[in-house]
Amino acid sequence: MRTTAETEATTEPGTAGVTGEAPVRFDTKIAVLLRDDLEPWQRLNVTAFLVSGLGTAAPEVIGEPYEDADGTPYLPMFRQPVLVFEGSKETLTAAHGRTLSRSLPRAVFTSDLFATGNDRDNRAAVRAVPTGQLDLVGIAVHGPRNAVDKILKGARMHP
């Protein structure tokens, strides 16, 4: 019997991976969409916070723990790439609406969160604003490749 990860991933013929096997191509996509007016430090901070939530909602995106040649253990990470995009405030708002309509696992980061310093205050800041009025600076989403591609319509890959 194949695991969820094995049934979700396929290989691309004619290309070799790190181990000499064909690389894995996933049927799903993990994507982060950032507002294009963020400072560099904000982009990094928002991306880190956003992706941290996806593994809890979609545990299948987490791979196995790592270990180096000396046997030193390391924490597991996502088992597939995280693609980072950018777009205008309008693009982000539209993508957020499309994400909600598809009911995909998602995380949001609003501009209010730059002024808070802990998880409790972050959650309170988001909870205080109706969905349509969130001042989004980033969203993360995981789902079928086609659906995520449609959600990201109008966005461009982060440079």
Rank of each mutant, 00 (worst) to 15 (best):
R2L: 13
T4Q: 09
T4R: 09
E6Y: 05
T7W: 14
E8P: 00
A9P: 07
E12N: 10
P13V: 08
G14M: 00
A16P: 03
V18E: 13
V18A: 13
E21P: 03
P23K: 05
T28N: 03
I30P: 08
V32G: 03
L33C: 08
L33R: 11
R35L: 12
D36R: 02
D37E: 12
D37W: 07
L38H: 10
E39P: 08
E39Y: 15
E39V: 11
P40E: 12
P40N: 04
W41Q: 13
Q42L: 14
R43A: 10
T47P: 01
T47Y: 02
L50P: 00
L50W: 00
V51D: 03
S52I: 04
S52M: 02
S52Y: 02
A58P: 05
V61M: 00
E67R: 10
D68E: 00
A69P: 02
P73I: 01
Y74Q: 04
L75V: 15
P76C: 02
M77D: 09
M77F: 10
Q80L: 05
L83P: 15
V84W: 08
V84G: 08
F85D: 07
E86W: 13
E86K: 14
G87M: 10
G87F: 03
S88V: 07
K89E: 14
E90Y: 01
E90C: 08
T91F: 07
T93H: 13
T93M: 04
G97L: 12
R102C: 09
P105Q: 01
S111C: 05
D112A: 15
L113I: 14
F114N: 11
R120F: 05
R120Y: 01
D121W: 02
D121Q: 11
D121C: 07
N122L: 02
N122F: 04
A125F: 00
V126W: 09
T131Q: 10
G132C: 01
G132F: 06
L134P: 02
L134C: 00
D135T: 08
V137S: 02
V137M: 00
G138W: 04
G138L: 09
I139M: 13
I139T: 06
A140S: 11
H142Q: 09
H142L: 00
H142F: 06
R145M: 09
N146L: 12
D149V: 15
K150M: 14
L152H: 03
K153Y: 07
G154Y: 10
A155I: 05
A155N: 09
R156F: 15
R156C: 14
M157L: 15
H158S: 08
